[in-house]
Design a protein around this nucleic acid. Structure first.
Lengths: 210, 210
DNA sequence: CAAAAACTAGACCAGATGGTCTAAACCACC
DNA sequence: GGTGGTTTAGACCATCTGGTCTAGTTTTTG
C-alpha cells in the first residue's frame, strides 16, 4: 500500500512544467550548479523564485521532481551542442580528431552557460544510486555511449596497446570532467586553446608509438 | 566583545587531545573520509565514539576543532611516507623519475589506509575559505610546495615549451587527485602499475620532443 | 451562472543539525 | 575529610531540512 505516487514522467519532454516557471528554473539552476543535490536548499530555491510550497509540490511532486525537470531541459540544451557531431555517428577512424571536435563542443557548451557545465559535472559526483535513478528516466545515456565510443576506438589500434581500454576511457573521462580546473582565465579564446592542448597531451601520451 | 574563544592551536602537535581518544579519532576519520565537512554529522561521530557532548566541546571547542585535530594527526602520518623523498629535497634534475617516486609514495600511503587518501582529496574539494583556514594552522603547505617544485622542474626545460608551466602544474594536480578513479580493482599490485602508467602517459604527453 | 477542477498560499510537522548550559562526578592536593 | 579545579553527562535550544495538509482562490467547463 504505497502512498499516492507522483508521475515523474509527466515532468520530462513537451509538458515539462518547469518551462512555465522560468523564475523557478533559473533559481533551481543557480542552486544546483553550486551545491550537490542533498546540499541544495529547496526552501531557498522557492524563496528566490517566489513560489509557494503548495504549488511547487502540486506540480513537481518533490525535490527530485524539480531536479529531474531541470535536467531534462539541460539535456536538451546540451544535445543541441552535440547534435552536429552525432550526425557522423561518432567517427572511430580518426580518434583524436573526433576527440578534439567533442572537446570543442564541450567548451562551447561551457561558454554558453557555465552553470550548466558545472551541473553536468556535479551529477557525475553524485552516488551511483542517484545517477541510475536519474538516467532511468532518459532514453539514452550519452555519457555511457561516449565511453563505449572511446572503448571501440581504443580497440581499433590507434592507442598504444600497453594501455588497457578501460584505463584510457577513465583517463579521458577524468580529463574532460576537469578541464575547468585546467584553465586559469575566463577568456574564451584561451579556454579552447587549453582544451586543445589537453587533447594534444593525451594524444602524445597514449597514441601508438612507431 | 567576542564570545569566549577556544584556543585551536592547543589541538595540534604533542598535546593533541585526539590522541587520548582513539575511538573518537577512528569515528571521525570514518565519517570525514566518507562525507564532506558540512555533510558529516558530529552527532553520529559522537554516538559511534560513545562520547558525550559535554566532554567533546570541552576538549575540541567545536566541529572545526575536531577536524583540525584529525588533520594534524593525518598530516603527520602522510609526512612519514614522504619523508624519505624530502631528504633529496625534491630533486629537479630528473623530473619524471622523481614524479614516479612521489606517485609510489602516494600509492603506498593510500594502501596503508585508504580512508586517509580520501580525506586528503576531500579537503581539496572544500571551498577556498575553509582550506585556507585549515592551512593557516600548519607551518608549511606541502601541497603548494609540490606545485612549486613542478613549476621549477618545468622551467628547467624537461617539458615541451609549448605548454605553460601553470598548465602542467594543474594537469599533474588533476591526475594525482584522481588516480583512485583510474584504477578499477583494489589489488595493490595493480594500483602501483596503473599509477606508473599515469606518469608514463604524462611523460610521453608533455616531455620535450626531440 | 454554477459546479467542478486546477491551482495556490502558508501554517504546520517530524526529524535532523551544531552548539549551550547546568549539575554532578571525579580527582589531586593539603 | 574537605576544598577547588577539571572533566563528564545529557537535557535543552534555535535553526534548518523536505514534506504535508487544509482552506481558499482562480480557472475551466457544462
Amino acid at each position: 500500500m504505497k502512498k499516492r505516487s507522483f508521475d515523474y514522467k509527466a515532468l520530462i519532454g513537451e509538458g515539462n512544467p518547469l518551462l512555465r516557471y522560468p523564475e523557478l528554473k533559473e533559481a533551481a539552476i543557480d542552486e544546483f550548479a553550486v551545491k550537490r543535490y542533498d546540499d541544495a536548499s529547496l526552501n531557498d530555491i522557492l524563496k528566490k523564485a517566489g513560489m509557494s510550497k503548495g504549488s511547487f509540490y502540486h506540480h513537481f511532486g518533490d525535490k527530485f521532481g524539480l531536479y529531474l525537470a531541470m535536467m531534462d531541459i539541460i539535456a536538451q540544451k546540451k544535445l543541441s551542442f552535440f547534435y552536429p557531431l552525432m550526425n557522423e555517428n561518432l567517427d572511430t577512424s580518426d580518434f583524436f580528431g573526433t576527440l578534439k571536435a567533442i572537446m570543442k563542443a564541450t567548451t562551447e557548451f561551457m561558454l554558453h552557460d557555465e552553470r550548466l557545465h558545472h551541473l553536468s559535472n556535479r551529477l557525475m559526483e553524485e552516488n551511483d544510486a542517484f545517477r541510475n535513478r536519474m538516467y532511468s528516466f532518459f532514453a539514452f545515456d550519452y555519457y555511457q555511449s561516449f565511453n563505449q565510443w572511446v572503448y571501440h576506438a581504443v580497440q581499433s589500434g590507434q592507442v598504444d596497446s600497453r594501455y588497457p581500454p578501460d584505463f584510457v576511457v577513465k583517463l579521458i573521462e577524468v580529463m574532460f570532467a576537469n578541464i575547468h580546473k585546467l584553465v586559469s582565465s575566463g577568456d574564451p579564446e584561451h579556454l579552447l586553446e587549453t582544451a586543445t592542448q589537453v587533447i594534444d597531451v593525451i594524444q602524445d601520451g597514449i597514441s601508438r608509438k612507431h
